[in-house]
């Protein structure tokens, strides 16, 4: 009885301290983000002292042509590369699950190379490669490099989802006369959809998040927003950059939440399947 009480009181004494510690770490993680957001509403032109509240910069950022261009590039690259890496990665994941062939381990191991090598080396390898085949850096090389680093993540994410599903449903579809393509579109794809969605969200956030690889594969006329900010920081940044960054932060948060919901759905669904069998 006594020891139990003691343990309880110890726990109660420990909890606030550990809570405080956790809060401090969260504060450390969110402080710079909060500062970026706060200064996007600042009336002062410099990011020094908070003077007053305004939405001015959210209107002004549209007049900053270079900034808007880099933002537009960021969105185009993220959108296009996500679509391509989704198609390539999903097909590859399902194919690797379905078929047995000689070079299978080579194909699936090659997916891990961009994940394993340091980003900076990957960026340089692409830069050197493009210049050797006389393709000058620009939107094309930027998009190609983003597809290359996000596609393996899509393939691996989808593959881990595919591993759990029931093959007999696909066989049933084929027995009922559906061809390979129809079976894929009508049966396989809907079943792995949550995996495809979280793979897509991963590709999208990775593209928006990338700095190192884009640094080497972007051309002078195709900078992305992060590269633009990187170039501006030393000279001083005007608050319209904060406004745009705030939108990026919000966008990322929304993508994260959607992908979390997709994942939870999948887990629920898989849980349901398991209990049925």
């Amino acid at each position: 009885m006594d020891t139990k009480k003691l343990q309880k009181s110890e726990k109660a004494g420990f909890a606030p301290l550990s809570m405080l510690y956790a809060c401090l770490v969260y504060l450390f993680l969110y402080l710079p983000i909060a500062v970026v957001i706060a200064f996007s509403f600042n009336t002062s032109k410099t990011n020094i002292i908070f003077e007053g509240f305004t939405f001015e910069w959210y209107a002004k950022m549209f007049d900053n042509r270079q900034l808007m261009e880099s933002f537009q590039n960021t969105l185009i690259v993220a959108g296009v590369s996500t679509v391509f890496s989704l198609v390539l990665g999903t097909l590859c994941a399902v194919g690797l699950y379905k078929f047995e062939f000689k070079l299978k381990s080579l194909v699936s191991n090659s997916l891990y190379i961009p994940i394993a090598i340091p980003e900076i080396v990957f960026g340089i390898a692409m830069l050197v490669f493009f210049s050797s085949v006389h393709i000058s850096t620009g939107m094309f090389t930027l998009i190609v490099s983003h597809i290359t680093f996000s596609m393996p993540f899509v393939a691996i994410t989808v593959r881990s989802r595919v591993a759990g599903f029931d093959r007999s449903i696909e066989e049933a579809a084929k027995d009922l006369g559906a061809n390979e393509f129809r079976t894929f579109m009508r049966v396989t794809l809907p079943m792995i959809m949550p995996g495809v969605i979280s793979g897509g969200m991963l590709a999208l956030t990775m593209s928006l998040d990338d700095v190192v690889i884009s640094f080497f594969t972007a051309g002078p006329d195709s900078t992305t927003l992060p590269l633009k900010i990187l170039g501006m920081v030393k000279k001083g940044v005007s608050p319209d950059v904060n406004a745009l960054s705030t939108l990026m932060i919000l966008g990322t948060a929304v993508i994260m939440v959607i992908s979390q919901i997709a994942q939870n759905r999948l887990e629920q669904r898989q849980g349901g399947n398991n209990s049925e069998s």
């Binding site: 402080l31 710079p32 970026v36 990011n47 900010i229 990026m248 993508i255 994260m256």
Partner: peptide
């Protein structure tokens, strides 16, 4: 969440 927000933006926050 912070880990997925572009790191140049976050480091720029530290800069400020």
């Amino acid at each position: 969440l912070p880990f997925w927000i572009n790191s140049v933006i976050r480091i720029y926050g530290w800069n400020t």
